[in-house]
Design a protein around this nucleic acid. Structure first.
Lengths: 215, 215
DNA sequence: CTACTTTCTGGCCATGCGGCCAGAAAGCAG
DNA sequence: CTGCTTTCTGGCCGCATGGCCAGAAAGTAG
């Protein structure tokens, strides 16, 4: 007998099981990225993986769990990648530049992961019609970046502004850079990232650097 | 006999016909805004309008034409509203501020229209899997704003930067302001808009105002 | 009134969906 | 080999979808 639900089971999964789960997740990511949320069905994912549709049901409790796994995995992957490349930055401006550049590098190397994440984020809803992964899911990112700005303001490196709005806007700028690049692949992603770093440096830095917060 | 396709017909439509079409479009907008693209079916739209599903088929060639009409109508509405409120602005900075504020006012007054537009934009794809209304649909907006920036750079009002990246980023910042406000309705939209205007003023203005382009 | 057009209803259709399962196949332990 | 577990296939189910249509209803002109 198959376990009541291997997907939610606690037992150590076999090598084969883990490999299959990883393969299915990867194929699902590609399908979401290529066809979009609406056109991505379990049948299409199975087709891309070269397996029967039932295999997905065997390894995952359902489509919802599959998407949960994608979100969790990709999110962790990005966070690790970006945070690693921000280490050692001491100034807020430097940290922000490293942040933007790191995300741009990740975009270039794993565009499908980000596309799939976006499709799932924007379309999955709970039974009551509300977003499953809302803007609220970005809270940690917003708050971390806002805190970075506030620290820069306290040290006098940055001018006075609403740290939260700035944090939100940085994320928006990064996301749109990705969307634009996906539409126009010949667009220079690295140049765009540097331009964004300049943009926000001008937007945030104190008018008379060296002093404390300017007003 | 019903006309071969009233939806695409050229004849002057009757009052009743126009009223029905308008009602259906409005109900469709509300449904897209409230339930999202995935959960919006012709049946649900008809239910909200209190009519039979067949009425939609009678007045529109299909779901695709309905969505086309929504996009066209809302797009025209926004463009007219915003452009009207930018008239008379002579400086790039002033025009940008007026632009951002106007969009914020429109958001406050017609959130469902913008939500529906977003749902349709992000999810409708053609048969070959490509976006029907892609980032390319924003081209006119991007280009107009970029040209505004270039003019400001020529006059020495603005510093040197990539006008296109700046135009894209402004749009992203505005869109995210809306998304954030929808998630947190108590968020102060007007203050956010003013904060954005300040942000981009700092990001774009020349370091030594009064001269010509700075480098 | 009748004759005709416009508008609407209710239901049918083929399609594709996610979920599920009986049993085949494969792998493994004795 | 046999017996057991894990993994997979192929197909079936109920359901919702967009599109479609026959005919009813409402409106209008003569």
């Amino acid at each position: 007998m198959r376990p009541e639900s291997r997907a939610t089971g606690q037992k150590a999964a076999s090598f084969i099981e883990e490999a299959r789960r990883a393969q299915i997740i990867e194929c699902a990511v590609e399908t979401f990225a290529e066809l979009g949320f609406v056109a991505t069905s379990l049948a299409r994912i199975a087709e891309r993986a070269g397996i029967s549709k039932g295999v997905i049901s065997y390894h995952f409790a359902g489509k919802a769990e599959l998407m949960d796994q994608i979100v969790e995995q990709v999110y962790r992957e990005i966070a690790g990648f970006v945070l690693l490349r921000m280490e050692g930055e001491t100034t807020a401006t430097g940290a922000l530049r490293a942040n933007i550049r790191a995300v741009a590098v990740y975009m270039r190397d794993h565009p499908t992961h980000l596309l799939a994440l976006g499709e799932i984020f924007k379309n999955v809803r709970t039974a009551d019609g509300k977003r499953r992964y809302g803007t609220a899911f970005n809270e940690p990112v917003y708050e971390a970046r806002a805190e970075m700005f506030r620290q820069g303001q306290r040290s006098g490196e940055l001018r006075s502004f609403d740290a939260r709005v700035m944090a939100i806007t940085v994320q928006a700028a990064i996301d749109e850079m990705f969307a634009y690049w996906v539409t126009y692949p010949e667009h220079d992603l690295e140049a765009h990232a540097d331009e964004l770093a300049d943009l926000f440096e001008h937007a945030t830095r104190a008018e008379h650097p060296g002093g404390t917060a300017d007003r």
